[in-house]
Design a protein around this nucleic acid. Structure first.
Lengths: 134, 134
DNA sequence: CACACTGTATTAGTTGACTAGTACAGTGTC
DNA sequence: GACACTGTACTAGTCAACTAATACAGTGTG
């Protein structure tokens, strides 16, 4: 069910977090559902319980789950809402707008950049020389 | 001239890199100009020469400067080009388009997200509950 | 309360990112 | 070649991120 890379550079707890987020986004985990207990998931993934805890904490911080000591960890009511594609994209859009304004660009220029990027991403297109992998 | 924070969490070499990028973007450092020597800048910043080297290497990797052993480090011909606001924004736009496609959204939805973000960023606007600081 | 489950807290080991110290190597001028 | 500059390579120390080991604490059922 879960798949983990134990390479350095992409921490296990982030992978767990991401996979749970995907399940919440897809509705596999719905509001009110219990997540696996930290011990159960840790055993399944052959990982320390604390690593699972770390993932759950991240999810809790972003409001997707809530934990009740002694009971378990549960998907919140508005988790599905937060994982709507439009909501997720809104974060990136905010970043882009932020940078555009810092650079002194107009709204039209920002929109134009997106259109252009959309075009380029449809065709493979040859890019100019190198670039950061980031 | 240069200002450094020696806090953990934002490495000195990245700060040097960023400040040099700003000067290239603004034209203070033009194509063909020599950067300060690694020793000179290191002395001025009270930092190890290798830290400056690290910054120069990053700039070289992104094609903004080129180094000539024994001579110095120089701004490349197309550095100014690369630092055009439109070019910089294009990277973010590509990220946004990428995510939009992964989420299965349309071009119109992506554009709409940007417009909406622009609107929200103009007014202070009250946001909903918490959120990642990221 | 005993028990079996749940999450929580404390402590410690490993590892890579970052910075520094110091020696090496190329360029140009005298 | 000597000298004063330039970048380069190697080695080492410090620190925070990540993971684990293990003990602590709450919940619910018999």
């Amino acid at each position: 069910m879960f798949e983990l890379n134990r390479d350095r550079g992409n921490p296990v707890y982030l992978q767990i977090q991401a996979q749970l987020e995907r399940r919440i986004a897809s509705g596999t985990l719905a509001a009110g559902d219990a997540l696996p207990s930290v011990r159960a998931l840790a055993k399944q993934l052959r990982v320390n319980p604390n690593t699972v805890v770390r993932a759950y904490r991240e999810l809790e911080f972003s409001g997707l789950v809530e934990t009740r000591h002694g009971e378990g960890t549960f998907v919140t009511q508005d988790a599905g809402e937060q994982m709507q594609p439009e909501v997720l994209l809104a974060e990136r859009a905010a970043q882009l707008v932020n940078e555009a304004k810092e650079l002194g660009l107009t709204k039209e220029q920002a929109l134009s950049a997106v259109k252009s990027a959309w075009r380029k991403s449809s065709k493979p297109g040859k890019s100019g020389k190198s670039g950061k992998v980031a």
